[in-house]
């Protein structure tokens, strides 16, 4: 039984990897655009901030990982548009297998994006190589999980691809900028500084920056908040995907 479930999961993963490889444009742009942005911002942040290199690398990383909600959302939305998710739900594969099979390739894409940006930051921008890579790995995994859950949940409630684009573009700019990904929170107007913790990006940025600096204690609260956000959204996404859409007004 477990063997069958694992096999079904592996089949799903293989299939979704194929689909991702055949439609790579979006994620390629979300890897190379932040790299370009880092190169442009680097002199500005170096002059304006202490520790400007850290902000130069982690700011665009957080901003564009939120943009990657669109990659996650699209992978789910296409299953709705193509009506293929119901065919999978009707198969004998356990629904957890289907969910895992769908999530793993997209999660991998998110990890690759963040890892590529950190490596670029160290190799080109001059970010010191983190003292403890395990901390960084933990931060990348947690933030990747939250983005995956948010993107999946989003795709289960939007009505169209246009809705998804609006939500991800607007969400990325709002979450990223309010969270300090573009302008550090310390430099924001006072009222915005107070509002910043309402943004998941604020906690994602804090998690990533503390992880890169090797500050395990500083990681704790941001890690808990990011994990909590991820779990809540994952619960919503799992509920929606397990039930399917039936004949709701969605799409």
């Amino acid at each position: 039984m477990i063997g069958d479930a694992l096999y079904a999961t592996a089949v799903q993963i293989r299939h979704n990897v194929l689909l991702r490889l055949r439609d790579p444009a979006q994620i390629i742009s979300y890897i190379f655009l932040p790299m370009a942005l880092m190169l442009v911002f680097e002199p500005l942040y170096q002059r304006a901030l202490d520790g400007g290199t850290l902000q130069t690398v982690t700011g665009p990383l957080i901003l564009f990982s939120v943009f990657a909600l669109g990659v996650v959302g699209n992978s789910v939305l296409t299953e709705r548009e193509w009506r293929t998710w119901d065919r999978l739900r009707a198969s004998r594969a356990p629904r957890t297998s289907l969910l895992i099979g769908k999530a793993v390739p997209v999660f991998t894409v998110l990890l690759v994006q963040q890892t590529a940006l950190l490596v670029f930051g160290c190799a080109v921008i001059g970010l010191p190589v983190p003292r403890d890579l395990l901390h960084v790995a933990l931060a990348v995994l947690l933030w990747g999980f939250a983005v995956l859950a948010a993107g999946t949940a989003l795709a289960t409630v939007v009505r169209s691809r246009g809705d998804l684009m609006l939500a991800t573009d607007l969400g990325a700019i709002l979450i990223g900028s309010l969270g300090g990904a573009l302008v550090p929170v310390d430099l924001m107007p006072g009222w915005l500084q107070h509002a910043a913790p309402a943004s998941p990006g604020y906690w994602g940025l804090a998690l990533m920056q503390n992880a890169v600096q090797g500050d395990l204690r500083g990681m704790l609260v941001p890690a808990l908040v990011v994990a909590g956000i991820g779990l809540a959204l994952a619960g919503l996404a799992t509920y929606r995907l397990s039930r399917g859409w039936g004949r709701s007004d969605l799409l």
């Binding site: 069958d4 096999y7 079904a8 799903q12 299939h15 193509w82 293929t84 065919r87 004998r92």
Partner: peptide, 30 residues
């Protein structure tokens, strides 16, 4: 696993081949 459904509307992956479809749905059905 005992049921096979052919929906009224086309429900296929445009970017996957015919063989890949059969491998996927055969695989998830064991």
């Amino acid at each position: 696993g005992l049921v096979g459904i052919c929906p009224q509307h086309i429900a296929l992956y445009p970017s996957a081949t015919v063989r890949e479809h059969l491998q996927l749905f055969g695989g998830v059905n064991g």
